[in-house]
Amino acid sequence: MFFKFLLRRLMYVIPMLIVTTLIVFSLILIIPGDPALALLGDNATEEKLALLRSQLGLDQPVLIQYWNWLTNAVQGDLGRSLFTGEIVSDAVFSRLGITFQLVVASIVFSFIFGMIFAIGSVIKPNSWMDYISRFMGTIGTAIPNFWLAMLLIVVFSVNLGWLPATGFTSISDNLGGFFQSIILPAICLGAFGAAQITRQLRSSLLEVLESDYIRTAYSKGLLLWPVIWKHALRNSLLPVITTTGLLFGNMLGATVVIETVFAIPGMGQLAVNSILQRDFPMLQGVVLVMVILVLIINFVTDVLYSVLDPRIEIK
């Protein structure tokens, strides 16, 4: 059963990957700029440039270039950086772990705050907690993450000196250092998610708390907290799972900004640098891995759904 499900998902993942990478490939060629020029500098002669282009295969038609990239990629070879000669897959994977830690920390942050605000809001409608939650739900959605990043850096790094403004310590190197370096980026990356989860969980909790089985739970003698904990929360989280899956992709995209602001050497920063340097193979590698990550998350979301809701069967 599960194997069949997996197989079916793969069937639709492959065309998805082909389409997305093809789109990225075409987009790269639309961006003005020439990698040969970027490599050789402004003083290069036209001959030298042409030579380099043909060495890199850049003089061939787009579809041929894409086909060459694809056939290599299928064999696990994503090529080399035009700029540094680094092997693309090595470069991407060395940064994947960093970005992954950042995104997971941001999801965790979003969830903890989303749950606290949503539950705090519904246990007593129109209380100060309810107002704060609704305010947070709005402001978290509206505030731009780079602006929040600069604000937090000014307050917590520059003025108070509590947390580092830049850099990253991996969780495997130093736990304390990890937390210090991750707090501000995770807040900035997770603020939008926290707001989304607050809003969605709040409305789904309000709806679930009105339902008949909650009345049944009260009629058994349960009080508010056990009712929320045992009967309302799990039901209310179901729609939030979908949101969280979407947030994950959203955050991966936003790492481009956050990693640049906080100088975190992750995939987002790599993507920005590759664009600036017209390092096509590198950018293509980053995008490919991000797309695969998103697809994996979609898959996990679906499995999680069927685990949490017995009415849904994996097919």
Partner: peptide
């Protein structure tokens, strides 16, 4: 104790 009108929705589906 109490039972209700709609048994379809009175039990927790999860």
């Amino acid at each position: 104790s109490m039972i209700f009108q709609d048994p379809m929705s009175s039990l927790n589906p999860l």
